[in-house]
Design a protein around this nucleic acid. Sequence first.
DNA 1: GCCGTTTTCGGCCCGACTGTTTTCAGTCG
Length: 568
Amino acid sequence: MARANDEVAELLQELADLLSITGGEGFKIRAYEKAAKAIAGHPEDVSTLSLTALKKIPNIGDAIAKKIVDYNETGTIRQVEALRTQIPAGVRALTEIPGLGPRKALQLHQDLGIASVDELVAAIGEGRLRDLKGFGAKSEENLLRGIAVLRESGGRVLIDTATELAEEIVATLSPLALRCTCAGSLRRGKETIGDIDILAAAPSSTELMETFATLPFVTEVIARGEKKTSVRTTKGLQVDLRVVPLDSWGAALQYFTGSKEHNVAVREIAVRAGLKLSEYGLFDTGTDELVVSSTEEEVYARLGLSWVPPTLREDAGEVQAALRGELPRLVQLEDLRGDLHSHTDLTDGIASLEEMVAAAAALGYAYYAITDHAPDLVMQRMTDEKMLAQRAQIQALQASYPDLVLLHGTELNIDADGRVDWDGDFLSGFDVCVASIHSYFTEDATARLIAACENPHVNIIGHPTARRIGSRPQVEADWDEVFKACARTGTALEVDSFPSRLDLPDSLIRRALRHGVKFSIDSDAHAIVHMKNLRYGMCTAQRGWLTPDDVINTWPLDRLREFLRKGR
DNA sequence: GCCGTTTTCGGCCCGACTGTTTTCAGTCG
């Protein structure tokens, strides 16, 4: 649905970045950034909209609407193309490094001719930054650390990017195959994806391979054969298509879903049972006869294991649990009764309260919390009056939604001392309070997080590690101490579903679970389209082995309210 | 470049931190 929107948003953001590097006027740059956000979050496909319709989108005026029309006609925006000839792509890539912005990127380019991250690393190594005005020893250290964070994501893409691409491919290939689905790390719901694996079952692969290799976004065919074809896409992502006969579907799906470690553990069980497991099936080692292969369930069952949900297949205890028949009943998207963290255009969201509530109602939620930012995040310009006005608005709106209970909440800011924006009196007026870290990322966050838990009005710690995948590391904290405080005080930890956050990460969820902590899987939506991100938070939650009982927003409202009272 | 009960010009997201300075530019949320 949103492919054109995403591409337009990306081009507008690039325009903003290029203008900021060339020293463009600040308000103009911000206008492009706002427009990019508006387009990315706009529910309609912009490629189908007229100039007049485009101008009706908030933050899109005459000039930008014309640029979008330009895109719809030519597939690009001319001004972006023109600027690209002035600024090498590598210079913009430099600004991806945390702590390095447009001004310094330009300075590095102009003074030292640096036009890529690799060249910057080399220049630092040669000590060439030493003489540059505004750069010192500490800068070098910070740049290198920033580059390390950037590279940790090493060519991997976020789960939403990979999912959208994979689903498009599956949709295109499905009519040509008996079965077609994605496998690999995407099926396992990993937070970042290195390459996409697509599996198809068909009697003949010719047409599938031809269609796949000539998809519009394919830039290079890396390998092409009868059983397997690999391509690279415009996003630089590798996609592999494997075609298997229908009767080996189950074994093939199991094999190509991985993880490698999980498969090794499963194959060891097969070997001990005198069996051999490959992508073609489970075979008797003695006779080479096929035992089972058509469904994953059969393959696991024949080995004495219950079917293992793909999100658990990491050889992290799931094989032993499956052998004992003790796999958890994982939380599912359908279990969620509501969303407890979302924003409107009262702060930095782009949709109105009415629009967000209507979208939540359309999703069939039983309850839905609006949690706009609080005053300490100064740029959001929140005031007591605005918040109370919003509460009145929500109360009025409630009458129109007999099946949806609207909760008024806020996302508080945990300051350097662990305090939040309002005192207890004001906070007691909210149905739910999320509290999050938005600044001071470099200090030990343990005490701040524990102090927030001990606040009797704080119900949920929002995006607890404050990481941004590929661009900002987690805050440092003694997590076990934080988890103990959560369990002791009845404070839930959020699983923020934003694809660039997915926070808490799965490994910390499992650790927190051992302390008896409860969780809230939230969208943190700033636009209607973000509400669907819950599917990604759900993957992370499953990878953390969460069951419905662990997740407060699967609970009936009464039980949720009791939890939110926090013993008050 | 966008926007409008301050309305077609003149505002617009404000303040703090960091590392480099010797009074501040750049970056960030």
